[in-house]
Amino acid sequence: MSPRSDGDGLEARRASATDVTTGLPVPGRRWRRGELNTAFRIVASIVIPTFRFSARYHWHGPNRLPAEGAFVLAPNHFTNIDPLVVGTAVYLSRRAPRFLAKASLFKVPVVGKLMSGMGQIPVERSGRTRLSDPLGGGRSLVEQGGAIIVYPEGTLTRDPDLWPMRGKTGAARIALENDVPLVPMAHWGTQHIMARYGKKLRLFPPSRVDVVVGDPIDLSAYRGRPIDQQTLLQVTEVLMSRITALLEELRGEPAPATRWDPAANNQKETGRFE
């Protein structure tokens, strides 16, 4: 299915909780006290006007992000500005976007202080966090009823055509261990603002960015089962299939029959490969 026309996009945004183009809330949602703190408002005052200038968001279908309570949001990942795109959409849905982020970012002056203030979760490349294990920070946030954004691919996709590649099990583990919704998401168009591994922003003319949030994955079949590697791989495969299907909807074309596997293509799991 190809992206909807502007008229359809407007209708979809009216059905969603928040109009991402205007930022105006639709009645029925409430602010979550304490989530959108000063650090979030400082960053939002810079990021959101920039993206309103450089991007034209188009929602496909209703905004399915839970209005309250904990959940794990799992988007596709193909440019370094994806967190700003996804974070803007979540923020305007009146939930605080929090990510598992590279620990090195927390050492950058000003940026590091803002990220800490917003409650972002540092993850060392070696797999260690301030809470002593790679997923501890995510579990801690979920236990507090927060929303956490986890990129199941772990890094920018290696697929030559920017399709989702093989997934890792972190998002599935956090959702299963904490019995919270696992929500797939896809977006398309940010590559026109910044290329994969690019360093320059193309802010004008504005680029179209399509966004779709899928229904939470039905995890009932996995409840009560041991959360072992087999279970995690099964849930991760379902998750990656759902994300890929959402992206097919946005791009209006089928994904490759076989999902890209870095190991099978002699590529490193981290860092640039181009």
Score class of each variant (00 low, 15 high):
236 T>V: 06
150 V>Y: 10
232 L>C: 08
272 R>V: 12
204 F>W: 15
3 P>L: 12
123 V>D: 01
247 L>I: 04
75 P>A: 07
232 L>Q: 06
80 N>M: 13
192 H>P: 00
175 A>I: 03
257 A>Y: 07
238 V>G: 00
253 E>Y: 00
25 P>F: 07
24 L>F: 12
188 W>T: 00
5 S>D: 13
144 Q>L: 11
111 V>R: 07
44 A>M: 07
258 T>L: 12
96 A>V: 08
88 T>V: 06
5 S>P: 06
189 G>D: 02
216 P>S: 01
42 I>N: 01
95 R>N: 08
271 G>S: 09
106 F>Y: 09
22 T>R: 07
139 R>V: 08
93 S>N: 15
207 S>E: 08
181 P>W: 06
82 D>T: 07
45 S>H: 13
72 V>M: 02
258 T>I: 15
180 V>D: 03
181 P>K: 04
237 E>R: 07
101 A>W: 10
145 G>V: 04
260 W>T: 02
94 R>P: 01
124 E>R: 15
188 W>C: 08
133 D>M: 12
77 H>I: 08
66 P>W: 03
215 D>M: 08
232 L>P: 09
97 P>Y: 10
255 A>F: 09
80 N>W: 11
249 E>T: 13
30 R>H: 13
6 D>L: 15
15 A>I: 08
9 G>A: 14
171 A>L: 05
185 M>W: 10
176 L>H: 02
52 R>A: 07
38 T>L: 15
208 R>N: 11
179 D>I: 06
256 P>G: 03
159 D>W: 05
273 F>K: 07
56 R>N: 09
110 V>E: 04
231 T>C: 14
127 G>H: 08
95 R>S: 11
233 L>S: 11
191 Q>T: 00
201 L>S: 09
161 D>A: 14
14 R>G: 11
203 L>V: 15
69 G>I: 06
92 L>V: 06
82 D>K: 04
109 P>S: 00
127 G>E: 00
20 V>K: 01
11 E>S: 12
33 R>G: 10
146 G>D: 10
220 S>E: 09
154 G>P: 03
269 E>P: 02
13 R>E: 15
250 L>V: 05
15 A>M: 11
14 R>M: 13
190 T>G: 10
22 T>P: 12
227 I>Y: 05
131 L>P: 00
32 R>D: 07
115 M>S: 05
69 G>D: 03
142 V>E: 04
23 G>K: 07
42 I>D: 02
253 E>D: 04
45 S>A: 14
16 S>K: 03
107 K>L: 10
100 L>N: 04
